[in-house]
Design a binder for these strands. Structure first.
Length: 271
DNA sequence: AAGACAGCCAACCGCTCCCAG
DNA sequence: GCTGGGAGCGGTTGGCTGTCT
């Protein structure tokens, strides 16, 4: 299965790019943009396939790419984001301005994985990563309700404990992208409370929404109790992996806040 | 000095998704 | 609704470089 590699056609170069090829590619894209990657090499006078050109541009030639070593903060961000998102390198890269998915992937495999291995740090099992199709259907359903599974730690003192009586609510009061609401009955008090559930699209695309939620909740300093983690993006996944808990988010509150500040998501909090 | 080994990273490969026809 | 082509993504590889013996 699978179509033949696009570079197998006669005469197309493979392997490392020469400075001349880089110049040709940059000159062409600066002048014409990259509307059609497949047609680009011909137009630019390159003996490469479009895929190779795209990769070279995205990973190396783009003007806003940050080269050089990763800072400690960047590495920490990657670790946290990997906990939340798993091996979704492009999603992680989207939160680290100037860094590419390929670069992040390399750093992960060469440095961070070992580091975490030593710390027996938990992460999302790659085998449990949702496939894109799962993400898509989840977005369409827009209700990532943990219907029959506890998505938070049972021993978390203040977090609600999901029970079998959780029901998905229609998103009536807000039309916020990536956010739906569930009713959760707490085990301790038997109270029904509404809880926002944030899905993948929220985290990857809508920092403003997060800002809104944070703004609403920061005053009481309890906002994290009301946000569920985004990592379990399909019911199958939920069944196999409890993923990030409310408690995890709680512990990492500062991290999320710092990240959002750095990426322009929220204004700095006045202490 | 040179061979072996390990680490790093740019690039490739194969798969899935998206969308126009 | 179906199909095919292009784009994007994540996993993997291969070659270069640095370090060790």
């Amino acid at each position: 299965m699978g179509r033949a590699p696009c570079c197998e056609k006669m005469g197309l170069r493979k392997g490392p790019w020469s400075p001349e090829e880089d110049k040709l590619l940059i000159a062409h894209i600066e002048k014409n943009g990259h509307g059609n990657w497949r047609a680009l090499p011909k137009l630019a006078g390159l003996l490469r396939c479009g895929k190779s050109c795209r990769l070279r541009w995205i990973n190396y030639l783009q003007p806003d790419i940050k080269r050089g070593n990763f800072t400690k903060e960047e590495e920490d961000s990657i670790i946290k984001l990997h906990e939340m998102l798993g091996n979704r390198w492009s999603a992680i890269a989207a939160r680290l301005p100037g860094r590419t998915d390929n670069e992040i992937k390399n750093v992960w495999h060469t440095h961070l994985k070992k580091r975490l291995g030593n710390n027996s740090h938990k992460g999302v099992d790659p085998k449990l990563q949702p496939r894109k199709s799962a993400l898509k259907s989840e977005r369409l359903n827009h209700s990532m309700a943990p219907e029959s599974h506890n998505n938070g730690p049972a021993d978390s003192p203040t977090s609600p404990v999901a029970t079998s009586e959780v029901t998905t609510m229609s998103d009536t009061s807000t039309a916020m992208a990536g956010v739906s609401y569930v009713e959760i009955k707490t085990e301790e008090t038997d109270e029904l409370i509404q809880m926002p559930v944030i899905d993948e699209s929220f985290w990857s695309e809508d920092l403003d929404s997060f800002q809104s939620i944070m703004d609403e909740n920061l005053e009481s300093d309890s906002w994290l109790y009301n946000i569920q983690a985004p990592t379990d993006s399909s019911r199958d996944c939920l069944e196999e992996s409890p993923g990030q808990s409310v408690q995890d988010l709680e512990e990492n509150k500062d991290f999320w806040y710092d990240l959002l500040i750095r990426t322009g998501g929220v204004p700095e909090r006045s202490e």
